[in-house]
């Protein structure tokens, strides 16, 4: 396996594992919450990167998979009494299935049209769930507190969910690496650079794009279940927040799209920055504006993101920063 000898992969995994282990050392629940948010962002950004960074398709509504997965999982947990594990898998499966269906349709659209369509899909899904009584309509669903007893009580359950989140994040990074360094991934990169030329060279673009979309949707679906299980309730407004979708894009861009390490660093950096702005009395109120300003500077002056910029500037680093 070439993967095992890749310093780039180990670097990304080690950084994530180290950050993820930190709450275990301190044993602090508030540290754990901070780390959970960071891991969640890393995993979401890395999943999105498979579509956005490798394939070059801008999904503005990617959060639809997270929301739908979350809804599916919470429904199964609270109404059908299945285990968390099964719920997480079901969340991933329903998200993957939706992506497969969408892949056959909206992935035919290119550029801005695709981006617009993904926004439409997210809004339609939100509006639909809002009316869908089995999922609680506008009120959503709340988990019965006693459900946590199956997992040794609320406190234990939260640590367990954290552990699963950490494992899932490491898995996403591994998958992201394996995709990028596979033949499939080479086809995706070719599509990103020039879809017409790629097809002429024999890349079966419709199929490759669809699988990239499915892959980038499954993990958000699973993560949605974990998040809303931890959260205890789910509402349409929380589950399909377009804003979170766009934050995912910002994280990928910040770190460097199309690289394995980029979304990891980008997501962690973005969340740290946000955390800092939120506690600072001066920036608390305008943290969104500061984040916007930062994004603008990156888009205008460092479009390749931090890792991409380094790779271009310092070719020797290309072996380490994948």
């Amino acid at each position: 396996m070439r993967a095992l000898r890749s310093p780039g992969l180990w670097l990304a995994l080690a950084l994530t594992a180290a950050a993820g282990a930190w709450p275990y050392f301190t044993g602090s629940a508030s540290n754990r919450e901070v780390a959970f948010t960071i891991l969640l962002s890393v995993a979401l950004a890395s999943s999105l990167n498979i579509l956005l960074g490798y394939t070059g398709y801008v999904s503005f509504g990617h959060i639809v998979f997270y929301g739908l997965g979350g809804y599916m999982g919470i429904y199964l947990l609270s109404e059908r009494g299945v285990s968390l594990w099964l719920a997480v898998l079901a969340g991933g499966a329903i998200a993957g299935l939706l992506a497969l269906l969408l892949g056959a349709s909206i992935l035919r659209l290119r550029g801005a049209y695709f981006a617009l369509a993904t926004i439409g899909v997210n809004e339609a899904a939100r509006a639909f769930i809002n009316n869908f009584q089995p999922f609680g309509g506008p009120i959503g669903m709340t988990l019965n507190f006693r459900l946590y007893d199956h997992y040794g009580g609320a406190a234990r359950a939260l640590w367990m969910v954290y552990g699963v989140m950490l494992g899932l994040t490491l898995l996403v990074i591994l998958v992201s690496y394996l995709v990028k360094n596979s033949k499939f991934g080479l086809g995706l990169l070719a599509i990103r650079e020039n879809e017409d030329a790629a097809e002429i060279m024999g890349v079966t673009a419709p199929q490759a794009k669809t699988w990239a979309y499915v892959l980038s949707a499954i993990f958000p679906g699973m993560i949605g279940v974990l998040f809303f299980f931890k959260n205890g309730n789910i509402e349409p407004h929380d589950a399909f927040r377009l804003h979170l979708s766009i934050e995912m894009i910002v994280m990928v861009m910040l770190g460097g799209y199309g690289t394995v390490l980029g979304p990891v660093l980008g997501a962690a950096g973005y969340q740290r920055l946000r955390g800092m702005l939120l506690v600072s009395p001066i920036f608390k109120n305008i943290q969104l504006a500061v984040a916007g300003g930062l994004l603008l500077i990156i888009v205008l002056f460092v479009p390749a993101g931090a890792v991409g910029w380094l790779r271009h500037r310092v070719p020797v680093l290309r072996k380490v920063l994948e």
Binding site: I286, L288, A291, L296, P303
Partner: peptide, 27 residues
């Protein structure tokens, strides 16, 4: 600056303006 760049750049550039206005506006 990004008028000729891929669509993603202009989408993000105008979205960052969105964030700036909403951020300052909310404050």
């Amino acid at each position: 600056r990004v008028i000729d760049a891929p669509h993603l750049s202009t989408l993000l550039a105008t979205f960052s303006v969105n964030m700036i206005i909403i951020g300052i506006g909310t404050a």
